[in-house]
Nucleic acid binder design. Structure first.
Lengths: 295, 295
DNA sequence: CGGTCGATTGAGGTAACTCAAGTGCGGTGG
DNA sequence: CCACCGCACTTGAGTTACCTCAATCGACCG
């Protein structure tokens, strides 16, 4: 990620792009389509689209963000939700020292901005990790639409509920799992996410830094790096900078913890190390003496 | 909390009370009113009630749960939301070993059950920590109501958004804060919650065990106990079993960490210990050399 | 080709965990 | 009424998983 020509540091409130104004300012626009209809929206959100959404009556504007740009910042007045059409982002909370706490990594089909509904101001910041194409969903317009398309209204509840369940899973993970289990599950969920988007689930590039992963998982970047290296040693994955190859997704899925490093050796055979993996015993593949995933 | 005549262990699916059937079975009902109108609902949820909700057209059934009983269990088909009218509960996730992960402690005015919307099954379990009076909010009925009372629909989005922000705060706390800061903030939020409910914010009884607090905060029960004892020693609170007295809420609010125990002494004066508290420097009261809260 | 940033790896420290013993309270039954 | 028992809680001692600090290396970029 280059940060030379885009601001990586948080801009002052009001200094960021006022995307909701939707004026003639096209400085943040690039290639790509500029409007989507309701049907495309439903498909993107994986909502069963009934016939009633087949009209072209309602169109939703797209907007492009470059790497490092922000879709919204903390405290900015809320009026629109965002749906990721393409690209990768992170949402973060900022504490009083300017430290970032990563909350999520929205990607294709994800909705964000929901945290602004309650207080009428966004509670978090959404930063593009790559060039992004987002669909704007003005909240007022959406509410009105819900009155005529009830399945849309229900879909909104469903998506928000899904997000709530996801965060419950995060809380539960942060509260109960080891560093290794957190990183393993992170990789699994990324793999599944990429598969859904039509990419390879076996080989992909991380769009975020070790620091951002660590923040998301409640770990330091060093712990993330060490854990990835350990997974590599155990043959669970291959790592080369941002490039991750998934070698044993079942073990990653059920892993609780790796054997202590004192029990490992740089010179020990890969086979021997694999045999000492601690994960779920009733998983489908290999390795009989693995501990059960604790969540 | 007695567990002699109510099941403390998780019942088999279907074995629990089928509250949504709303049959003539009143075995779980006790004293208290049985119905609320829309206006009372809005007041409870702290939603601005417009004149249109003043009709007595729609009534919502109450249901009583005794300590240890469950309002819903994991996997149970979802059809109703719950609003706490009185009493205290916990919502938990259960892992494959039967370990509980506490997600929240719903109390008066709180809505729960929302996690069931997406998959049509509850994703968590809601257990009464005291005798409770809950209001049933059948989801279908609520959806229909939203069509005629738009402010109710908006309120639903708002409440769900609020819950999402709350969970973001939990994630952020679990990811970044020390054990002491977590316990301190837990006490502060409890104190504020009790104040909202009209109880004393300075002296209250915990409705949950140390184990449950620890699970909620991602700590062991021993750490919770030790931290409370330390707060007591520093004069921030008084502790006597479940009874908590808040002595210095400003310090609790901004506390980051306590001085290492090696710097403390059982024989040292309380004044000296207070002076070495680490918290936010620009707080309103006392203690100048405290570290700033990191979140 | 130096400068910056991200990633890796090592060494050492420590916050929080685990294990264990002991206390106090409330309920129950002799 | 009191002895007993179970459970929540407290407290201590020892362990460890993860953090902190620091050095190094490579990739990217002007």
């Amino acid at each position: 990620m280059t940060s030379s020509n885009v601001p990586e540091t948080r801009p002052e409130p009001g200094n960021n792009l006022n995307i909701s104004a939707a004026t003639g300012d096209t400085s943040w626009q690039r290639q790509g389509k500029l409007w989507s209809n309701l049907k495309e929206l439903c498909e993107l959100l994986r909502i069963p689209a009934t016939s009633s959404v087949n009209d072209e009556e309602f169109l939703f504007q797209h907007v492009q963000f470059k790497t490092g740009q922000r879709a919204h910042t903390i405290g900015q007045p809320f009026d629109t939700l965002f749906i990721v059409h393409s690209g990768f982002l992170k949402t973060v909370l900022i504490d009083e020292f300017g430290n970032e706490q990563v909350l999520s990594f929205p990607m294709k089909g994800d909705l964000f901005g929901v945290d602004g509904i309650h207080t009428k101001r966004y509670a978090s910041e959404a930063v593009a990790l790559s060039n992004c194409d987002l669909i704007l969903l003005p909240f007022k317009k959406f509410i009105a639409l819900g009155r005529t398309h009830s399945e849309l209204e229900h879909a909104m509840y469903s998506v928000m509920s899904r997000e709530l369940v996801r965060e419950q899973g995060m809380v539960s993970m942060l509260g109960a799992l080891s560093a290794e289990a957190r990183v393993a599950r992170f990789l699994v969920s990324l793999s599944e996410r990429f598969a859904e988007m039509g990419y390879s689930s076996k080989l992909f590039n991380l769009r975020m830094t070790r620091h951002e992963i660590g923040s998301y998982l409640g770990l330091t970047l060093e712990t993330v790096s060490r854990t990835l290296s350990a997974f590599n040693e155990f043959g669970l994955i291959t790592v080369d900078q941002r490039s991750i190859g998934i070698k044993d997704i079942d073990s990653l899925r059920t892993l609780r913890r790796l054997p202590p490093s004192s029990a490992r050796s740089k010179k020990a055979s890969k086979k021997a190390r694999e045999a000492s993996l601690i994960r779920n015993g009733n998983a489908s593949s290999g390795n009989s003496d693995l501990q059960i995933a604790s969540l």
